[in-house]
Design a protein around this nucleic acid. Sequence first.
DNA 1: CGGTTTTGACCCGCGC
DNA 2: GCGCGGGTCAAAACCG
Length: 491
Amino acid sequence: MEREEEESKKMEIDLSLKIDSDDDDEQVEEIEDHDQVKEDEKEEVHEATPGEIEDDSSVIQLSLQDNTKTKELSALEMEMESMKEENKVLRKVVEQTMKDYYDLQTKFSVIQENNIKRKDHTLSLSLQDNNATTSGEGPSRLIHEIFSKNIERNPSPLPQNNIDHDSISESDLGLSLRLQTSTCEKDNIEENKEAGKREQLASFETVQNKFQRVHELPAGITTHAAAYSPPNRKARVSVRARCETATMNDGCQWRKYGQKIAKGNPCPRAYYRCTVATGCPVRKQVQRCIDDMSILITTYEGTHNHPLPVGATAMASTASAATSFMLLDSSNPNSDYGYTTQQTFNNPYINSNTFHHSLNQSSNIRNINPNDPSQGIVLDLTNNNNLNEPRHFSTGGSSSSTSTDQHRFSWMQNKYNQQSSTSSSANIAMNNFYKPLEIHDRSWKSDQESNNSNNNNVTAIASDPKFRLAVAAAISSLMNKESNNNNTSNN
DNA sequence: CGGTTTTGACCCGCGC
DNA sequence: GCGCGGGTCAAAACCG
């Protein structure tokens, strides 16, 4: 409850700041207008005095006009002075509010820090079409349909406040969230398939029950949270996306400072640090997914100490939405998320789609990778309809279960040959939601240059209102659900 | 020449 | 205490 209050305070402050600053701007404009009026009137006065004097009466008239105009002028000056004073006061209020806001933010982060220490959560957020495995329909259409339904029913510009959650199940949305404690990872590795399947069923029921308890949604996600979030909170967000290049172009400037071959994955893990501002603590790790080399796992750690470049803001806002959820949820010691799911879905490589595959087809669970680079939030931007049928970058390769090694090394070979082949382009083009990601090979400068001709697809994905609505709705719904659960349990 | 990448060495935490 | 593995450092190489 405290958490929610603090969050709502933050929002209120945020809004009030906006209003204040807007008012401030208006005031300034008003003052400028007054200045303009004053100037105009001065001109008028100036024009009137040199007028031709034909007789005494006209002289008297003019002098009277002068007197009234002077009075008006002095009145306007007084008004201006008072407005200036008011402006000063308003500025002080804004400054004070800003100070309070940052104080609150700092306090909030300290509280979160303490809670995080107690419980290390891993949250995976998958946005994919679980029902489109055969039809080939992408998640964008599904999301569009779902939101269209709700918009039809409630033509509000904020659909996340009006989602009828009874009509949208998790499977309908193709959207799932899981939260887990990382301490149980090892236990999960030991589980056998049969036990795993039973756990999956239990987990699935739990997840469904959780989603059925969803209520109204707060609009508590701010887009600037990632750029200005408290520096002492080490947010960690992983993004899984199909990308055939060395790294995704997320709009930020990165410098590579290391590379390692991690155990269990022949693909090297690259380490980057943000160089947009000196001393920025943000790091990112980039590694190919062992099961599908076309998937690039980018893990962001830390928060930027500088305003993000325009191109990076959308991505950061999406990640921050997820981070906000993690922060909020982790502050709640009573949160019961993931107690069952964590036993089966402790691997971020096993996303909800794999989960549904396992359920529906009784197929194998993918191997747990202990070298999971993504303790934290996983934003899954892949359409894993063909998880059991990995994509190949080598030309002419066939997708068979025995070609795993060929699949892996075909990517390695292609990496040093040419980044895009016709087959890979065609493969990725099959995905009707996530387009091929922009090449980001050498430096940020080249990216900036190429941004003019190519789309920054990560940004585009994150900027997609449907995508953002879906993320916001999912996170908000869970946040609010949890708060409602607490309310009902308290009553 | 300055910025970036590469790569082996080093540090540190963790498990046995 | 030792070994392993992940993360970082820093010197050399590379590039525009």
